[in-house]
Structures are given as structure tokens and as C-alpha cells.
Design a binder for these strands. Structure first.
Length: 845
RNA sequence: GCCGAGGUGGCGGAAUGGUAUACGCGAUAGUCUCAAAAACUAUUAGUCGCAAGGCUGUGAGGGUUCGACUCCCUCCCUCGGCACCA
């Protein structure tokens, strides 16, 4: 027997699998389909442990389901657009496309090293015009339906570079490139109207698909639906009206001031002359504040009085109008009614600036106590000082009544608000999908006609120009013809957010070469939704929301018939460095999978990652841990010496019949029970994604097999089949050497090489073993004997009397260990749970 | 602050109302060896005891139950996400 040397067998099988198309999926075969998806990797350069972890999970599921007779699709592609490629270009002078494709090539090889059963004929690469053409097509469809529009949005703006910066390019409030202070500025952007889908995107209870709770609740909070009221406050000095949004209209009698966001459109109109200077200064300072700075300040409230007043219609009260940056311009109306007695922020503000505080919610109907401390602020209770509404419980009774009344009087109207904003897709960068828009002096903004797609990204550009996006430097590309009037026109120089690429890629895997449509509807109907989608929790509010939005848009476009594209999504864990912190080059704690493969082989790495713990585990890489599973694989390898083949042992005595069941004939009841128990356990565990305990049960079986002198082919065969999804290479090698070897006659063995190749020769083409419950039953069962809940003895009881309480009780009372604890006590009762435990309850004194 | 997930041996973890610590790592002792490595065998929650055996023990405290890692309440801590959302 040869030694187990992974480096000698793994590449050999990887090549054979590829050459023989073992993992190709026939998409026209739609019966029993199973579509496994792992979030596509970004083309960062190398596969890291996280990729190994998640793709091994996907691979195990793909292999397992295929063995069970499902027609499995397990594709992969590359998220190839994005900032890092452009940063590499700026810092290292390598073109983003070259950088990306080099990385991709390396990663393709690494995926092969991992032994993943990926079907690479169904793939996509985000930076390939063949793919991003359809991003552009989607953009045009969105435009047609008014789901894409040009709007303004606050952004990080570097006045020196004259450009918008991503949050990650703002370092301590300064531009990463030039070090200048970053400002907040309103910038024109292309936006997707995801807010139109806010209600549809909300998760219901029970959920419409089996997605993680944390994701569902996170998305719902993010969408932030609130049903409140917009209330009008006439301004004293002129005829204008302030509109404030509130979800607590029942506190309307407690309004003592109004606050506007600094950016509110009426600010400059309202402010009285002698306060202009102060107000201007406040606005200037608050606009300079970046989000980071505002956070750093904590919640210290600041504001300034405008000198203007408005009227609270419900009681005719004249209230002052203030400006404060704790009010957000882009939520609600940008104006808030100040009710310091029932809102903690309003209370803080009112206390700081000495504004009036009137209690409107009390602990009882007669509660007239002063609101002096934060703890005195009440959001719920009994309304007081609220005229005809005093005495009503809020929110239960008062809220809807006041809403009705305000609407009746015409002072307010019901309004639904969302925290969710429209999705800004404009990026002033090179390495992304060009937005298919042409600006014509005569015709204005003109969409690129569908027949002219894709608008291809030009190769020659300056990636780091000052004051304009990189694409603007490709003048030959920018200057074009207007599709409408053929006059001179310029192309849009912004590119799309890369989240657009990943919002629908799983549809394209199904039909990657289609040049006529985004994907074939029939194939999509048969293969979608995904059966399982493995991804990271960090995508809860980004990718995982955008992809749901796109799917809903696709449904409205008639491309698909469902809202949710994945029946099940799971959040995988994270493999930390050996020091327990996130792996990163700067910390120097990166475990390189290539090196580990060199030392232990891919099978051991896969097995180790899966054995670490549950799929969502966040834990560190233990360099010694791999030894354990490597050792396990070596023992599996070594076991082949003990395998006795039927032909050798049975010799001439073997009749056809006896040969058939001879494998089992020499397996004892215990052997059979362990085998079938393990089949059951591994099968159930993989189904529940409990890969760690599946492996543990294989280890237990291995321990049993190791104690035996002889192992039957049947046992070894089943063992290899169960291990195959986890460790595809070693099992394939042993399958060929031991199993196929034992089944072949001397003659057929000679020329079998070719013949076997064409017809289910691989272990990864065999059926999954089935567990037979008749082997699982045991004749004896151990029953725990407890006295007052403490274990005192363990009885072995024959199966046929196990349900007879009296028999078990008698046996238990015979036990000296038990008697010792019953002596001198009086029996209160006896509890017997059949086959498990008998508990004597006695007086404890 | 809010939302979500957690807290079990020296370590990764197992057990979701019924023998707590499966499986693995590490450690200790032994076998083999000139020796080491590897491999194999045994032990390995704490504590008292020569032993038999006892007691304690799943973040802390309380509760429900014949019986709680598991269910309920209060609190502490860790991780992830979000946050001046009116």
C-alpha cells in the first residue's frame, strides 16, 4: 500500500473530473432540480480561508444532493468591478482590467485546488460587456418605468479633487488622496426608486421565505415603516405653513416649539433680520460636519432661534421656530414639532435652551407633575392637559381619535414614512458599468437605445484626474452622436454601483451566453428560485436587499413569477486568524490556503473547516487542528489494508447468491447497526447543515472499524460514499483502488480504464447510501435510575419489557446503589419515561 | 440606546426537557525505538478520598418541573448590525 500523499492524488482527480465533465449540469433536465449558490467572490487576488469555508459548504450540499438523485446546479462567477481594482491602478499603475483578469485566473486555479464541483460553463464576470450589457438594459427598463431618475443626494465631497468620495475613502474626515477636509454637498445622482418597493420588501410573519431572522428584522428596521401624521403649522409672519411629521400626534397639545433641519427650504425665508447672521453661521458649521464628526460629538444638541413663530392650530398657541441639526432634512418633512414632555431629544433641547415644557402624558388622569428630569418624560400613559382628549389612554385610545379629529379639522393628514432611501447608483469612477445615457444640447438627456447596448468601457483613461470622473478623460468615447437628432452629444461619464452587478447575477448563470435577452424565461421558471443561498451577514442591508428589489422589478417586467429569489438563505461564519482577530495582511495573521494545501491537502482543509463547528461559527484557525483531521484521513487510507474483498475470501465456494449478501453475512449486528446509524446521522446532519457532527459520527465509525481485524468491502464502500462530499479526492482514489478494484475480474480489469471512464466510474456519480431502520433496533436498552433527579445507576433492560413500568421499577429497586439512597426515606412517587429514565422521588430529610 | 446571535473542560465544540462534556485538538503516562518523530494503548471538568464512592459543576441570581445547558423572569458579559428616524 502506498502512503497517503494528497499532492499526488488531488491534482490527478481534479484534472480527470474536468476532462470528463463530471460536474456539468444539464439545464434542460428540470425534474428534481436543486440550485445551490454561494455569494460570488470579488476578484481580490487570492481565495482566502473565508472562500474555502463557504464554498466547501456549498460543495458538500451540491455533491450530497446530486448523490440523492437531484439535478444539481452549483455555479460560480466573479464580482469583477469595483474600487480596489481602480485603487490598484492608481497606486501600482496596472490597468484595472489587467489586474482583475490576472486575479481571476489565479482564483480559478484555486477553486480547482479546493476540489469544488462547480460547473464553470455557467458563469458570469461582472466586467465582461456580455454581462454588464444587461445591467444597462435593466437601467433602461427602470428608466421607462420611472424607477430610475436623476436626483440630488448629500455626499462626501472633496473640494480639492472636485469629486465625490466613498465612505471608505474618507479617513478621519479627510480625503484619502489629497488630505483635504471633506464636505457634505448635494450632488446630482442617478437613483433607483427602491422606496416604491418598500412595502413589498417588508418581511411578514411568518416570513415569505426561509431567510435568517437577523436579516429579516434588520431589513424591516432599515426599511423603517412608520405610520404617522403630517401636521400643518401656519407661520405667524406670512402665509406659509410649516409641515411637521410625527408618529405621536396625540402629543399635539404639548407642542412648545418647532425645529427645522438646517437644510430646510423655508429656513432663509423665515429667519428674522436681526438673527440672520447667527442662523447663517449655524447652517455653515453644521453643513461642514461630516457624519463622523456628528457621531463623535455624541448627542449633544445644538440649535439656533430664527426669531419666527408659528401657530399650533389645536389651541391657537404661538410657538417659536428653531433650527437644529438633530432634525434630519431627508426624513419626514425636515421639520419636527417639539414636545419636550414626551420626547427625550426634545426634552434635552428644551432644557438646554430654556423652552417651555407642558406635560400632556401623565401616569394618571390627574398627573400634573412637572417634567424636570429625563425620567419624567413619558411616551405612554394617560393624556392630560389635552382638552377633550384628556383622560384617554395612549397610544391605545387616543392616537387614532386625535388622527381622525386632526384630519376632520383639516390640520393634518395621515402619512406613511420610510427610513429607506432611494438607491444611489452613480459612481464617479472608471471601473464599473457605464450608465447608458447621452446628453444632447438639443434633446437633453437621452437614453442609449437598446440596440446600441452595450456601451463598452473605453480602455484608455486617466484614473485619477482632478475635478472630473475618469471616464471624462476618454474624449473619443465621451463625444458621440445623439441617438435622436444625430447632433453632437456627450456620454454620461458616471458608472454604476457594483451592487447592481450582484443584484441579479444568479439569473444569468442560467443562460450566460444569451445575447438576445437577459435570460431565458423558461429556464428561469424551471430553475429559480434558488434552493439555498449561502452568504455573509454583512450583506443584510446591501446586496441581500437590492437583489430582492431587482427580483421584484423582474417580476413586474414579466420576466419571473415570484417575489423572492431564494427559498432559503443562510449566513455563514467567519474564520479568524490564529490570534483570534480578523485575518488581515496588516496584522500578519493571514492563513494562506495554498500553503495549508501544500502541507495537508485540500481534503484535510475542507474537513477541518467543516469540523470546526456549526456553519455560522465565528472562530479562529488553530494550526494544530488540521493535524486532527489529517490524521483521520490517514487512518481512513490505512484501513484499506484490512478490507477483504469478496473474490479473495470466498474463493471457489462462493455461489452467486452468497456472493450477493456475503458482505453483510460477515458483518455482525453491531457492525450493521453502526453502519446504518452513521448513514442516518450523516444524511440528517448534512440536510440540517450540521457538517461538524456529520464528520464526528464518521470518526466514531472509523474508531469502530479500526478495532476490527477485517473490514468488509460493503462497510468500506459505504464509509467512502458518506465521506465523499467532504473529502472528494481521497475517497475517489480509494474508490478506484479498493472498491472498483475488488469488483473487477482479472480480465475486465485489464481494459477497464477506458470503459469505466465513460460510465459512472466516479464515486461522485454513485447513489447515496440508504439507512435501513431494521438494523437500528437494539435488543437491550440502558435506562437511567435517578433518586430525586440524581443519577444513581444505569440498568440494561431487555427491549421486550421496556414499556413495563413494574418490571423496570423492580429491577431498579434491586440495585444496591439505588437502595443506598432510598434507605430510611419514604417514597413519594415514581416517574418512568419509557426506555430512558426512572426517577424515584423521596422525602429528602 | 435599539435589534439580532451567543456565554458549556486547558482549547474548537456536542447534547434543545431525561446519563452534561460526543468528536477532535492539546496534555500526561506507557508500548515500539539506540534515540527521536510517527504510530498505537490508557488517562484527562473540579474537588474530597488509599479505595469504594461522595460532593460540586453549563456567565450570575431567582423560578417552573419528578428531572433544566435546554423553558420563564432579572442581571452581567461577548460578538454582529443599526442609530439624533420625530
Amino acid at each position: 500500500m502506498n502512503k497517503y500523499i494528497p499532492s499526488q492524488i488531488e491534482p490527478k482527480w481534479q484534472k480527470k473530473w474536468a476532462e470528463n465533465g463530471v460536474y456539468l449540469t444539464d439545464l434542460s433536465e428540470t425534474k428534481n432540480k436543486y440550485y445551490v449558490l454561494v455569494e460570488l467572490p470579488y476578484t481580490s487576488g487570492d481565495l482566502h480561508m473565508g472562500h474555502w469555508f463557504t464554498f466547501t459548504m456549498g460543495d458538500i450540499l451540491a455533491r450530497f444532493k446530486a448523490r440523492q438523485g437531484f439535478n444539481v446546479l452549483f455555479p460560480n462567477g466573479f464580482d469583477a468591478f469595483g474600487l480596489p481594482a481602480e485603487n490598484a491602478a492608481i497606486k501600482k499603475g496596472i490597468h484595472p482590467r489587467d489586474w482583475t483578469y490576472q486575479n481571476m485566473e489565479r482564483m480559478r486555479v484555486q477553486f480547482e485546488t479546493l476540489g469544488a464541483s462547480i460547473d464553470w460553463t455557467k458563469t458570469m464576470v461582472a466586467c465582461d460587456p456580455k454581462y454588464y450589457k444587461w445591467n444597462q438594459w435593466i437601467f433602461l427598463k427602470m428608466l421607462e418605468r420611472d424607477l430610475a431618475y436623476r436626483g440630488k443626494l448629500m455626499s462626501n465631497w472633496c473640494p480639492s479633487c472636485q469629486t465625490v468620495l466613498a465612505n471608505e475613502n474618507v479617513e478621519n474626515g479627510k480625503c484619502w488622496r489629497c488630505g483635504n477636509e471633506v464636505e457634505q454637498k448635494e450632488v446630482d445622482q442617478w437613483l433607483f426608486r427602491i422606496t416604491s418597493y418598500a412595502d413589498r420588501l417588508l418581511w411578514s410573519d411568518p416570513p415569505q421565505a426561509d431567510w435568517p431572522k437577523s436579516l429579516r428584522e434588520g431589513q424591516n428596521d432599515w426599511i423603517g415603516k412608520s405610520e404617522g401624521m403630517e401636521i400643518e403649522f401656519p407661520v405667524v409672519q406670512d402665509t406659509s405653513k410649516l409641515k411637521a411629521y410625527t408618529v405621536f400626534p396625540e402629543t399635539i397639545f404639548g407642542v412648545t416649539y418647532m425645529v427645522l433641519a438646517p437644510e430646510h427650504s423655508l429656513v432663509r425665508k423665515l429667519v428674522v433680520k436681526d438673527r440672520e447672521k447667527e442662523v447663517e453661521e449655524y447652517i455653515r458649521v453644521s453643513q461642514k460636519k461630516s457624519e463622523l464628526e456628528r457621531k463623535a460629538e455624541g448627542r449633544e444638541k445644538t440649535g439656533v432661534f430664527t426669531g419666527a413663530y408659528c401657530i399650533n392650530s389645536v389651541n391657537g398657541k404661538k410657538v417659536p421656530i428653531w433650527i437644529a441639526d438633530y432634525v434630519l432634512a431627508d426624513y419626514g418633512t425636515g421639520a419636527v414639532m417639539g414636545v419636550p414632555s414626551s420626547d427625550h431629544r426634545d426634552f434635552e433641547f428644551a432644557r438646554k435652551y430654556g423652552l417651555e415644557i407642558i406635560r400632556v402624558i401623565g401616569k394618571s388622569a390627574s398627573d400634573q407633575s412637572k417634567v424636570l428630569l429625563m425620567d419624567d418624560v413619558l411616551e405612554e400613559g394617560i393624556l392630560v392637559n389635552s382638552e377633550q382628549f384628556s383622560g384617554l389612554k395612549t397610544p391605545e385610545e387616543a392616537r387614532e381619535k386625535i388622527k381622525d379629529w386632526l384630519e376632520e379639522k383639516g390640520w393634518g393628514k395621515r402619512q406613511v414614512q420610510y427610513h429607506l432611501h432611494d438607491w444611489s447608483i452613480s459612481r464617479q469612477r472608471y471601473w464599473g458599468t457605464p450608465i447608458p445615457i447621452i446628453y444632447c444640447e438639443k434633446c437633453g438627456t437621452v437614453p442609449v437605445p437598446e440596440k446600441d447596448l452595450p456601451v463598452e468601457l473605453p480602455y484608455e483613461v486617466d484614473y485619477a484626474p482632478k475635478g472630473k470622473p475618469p471616464l471624462a478623460t476618454a474624449e473619443d468615447w465621451v463625444n458621440t452622436e445623439c441617438p435622436k437628432c444625430s447632433g453632437p452629444a456627450k456620454r454620461e461619464v458616471e458608472t454604476m454601483d457594483t451592487f447592481v452587478d450582484s443584484a441579479w447575477y444568479f439569473f444569468r448563470y442560467l443562460d450566460p451566453e444569451n445575447d438576445a435577452e437577459i435570460f431565458d424565461k423558461k429556464i428561469a421558471k424551471a430553475w429559480m428560485p434558488l434552493d439555498i443561498y449561502i452568504g455573509g451577514p454583512e450583506h443584510t442591508l446591501g446586496h441581500a436587499l437590492y437583489s430582492r428589489f431587482f427580483t421584484m422589478v423582474f417580476k413586474d417586467l414579466g420576466l419571473v413569477s415570484f417575489d423572492e429569489y431564494a427559498k432559503k438563505r443562510i449566513h455563514h461564519g467567519t474564520i479568524l486568524g490564529p490570534d483570534g482577530s480578523r485575518m488581515s495582511k496588516s496584522r500578519g495573521n493571514v492563513v494562506n490556503p495554498d500553503m495549508e494545501v501544500k502541507n495537508y491537502g485540500a481534503d484535510a482543509i475542507r474537513l477541518y473547516l467543516m469540523f470546526l463547528g456549526p456553519f455560522d461559527i465565528v472562530t479562529s484557525w488553530n494550526p494544530d487542528g488540521v493535524n486532527g483531521v489529517y490524521h483521520f484521513l490517514q487512518r481512513v487510507w490505512g484501513l484499506q489494508e484490512k478490507v477483504t474483498t469478496n473474490s479473495v475470501i470466498l474463493g471457489s465456494e462462493a455461489t452467486p447468491e452468497s456472493k450477493e449478501d456475503s458482505g453483510q453475512a460477515r458483518m455482525t449486528q453491531i457492525d450493521l447497526r453502526i453502519m446504518h446509524k452513521t448513514i442516518k446521522k450523516v444524511t440528517e446532519d448534512i440536510e440540517q447543515l450540521k457538517f461538524n457532527t456529520a464528520i464526528a459520527s464518521l470518526m466514531e465509525w472509523l474508531n469502530h472499524l479500526s478495532r476490527k481485524d477485517r473490514i468488509e468491502v460493503e462497510e468500506y464502500k459505504v464509509f467512502l460514499l458518506l465521506l465523499a462530499p467532504f473529502a472528494p479526492h481521497i475517497t475517489e482514489e480509494l474508490w478506484e483502488n479498493v472498491i472498483l478494484g475488488s469488483e473487477a475480474t482479472p480480465e475486465s480489469k485489464e481494459d477497464s480504464g477506458q470503459a469505466r471512464m465513460t460510465n459512472n466510474w466516479s464515486i461522485h456519480q454513485q447513489s447515496w447510501p440508504k439507512s435501513d431502520s431494521k438494523f437500528l433496533e437494539e435488543e437491550e436498552v440502558s435506562v437511567v435510575v435517578q433518586v430525586n433527579g440524581k443519577v444513581r445507576d444505569i440498568l440494561v433492560i431487555q427491549k421486550d419489557v421496556i414499556s413495563d413500568k413494574e418490571v423496570v421499577e423492580t429491577r431498579a429497586l434491586e440495585s444496591k446503589k439505588v437502595q443506598k439512597f432510598l434507605e430510611g426515606k419514604s417514597m413519594k412517587k415514581t416517574v418512568y419515561i419509557s426506555g430512558k429514565v426512572i426517577n424515584f422521588v423521596v422525602n429528602s430529610d
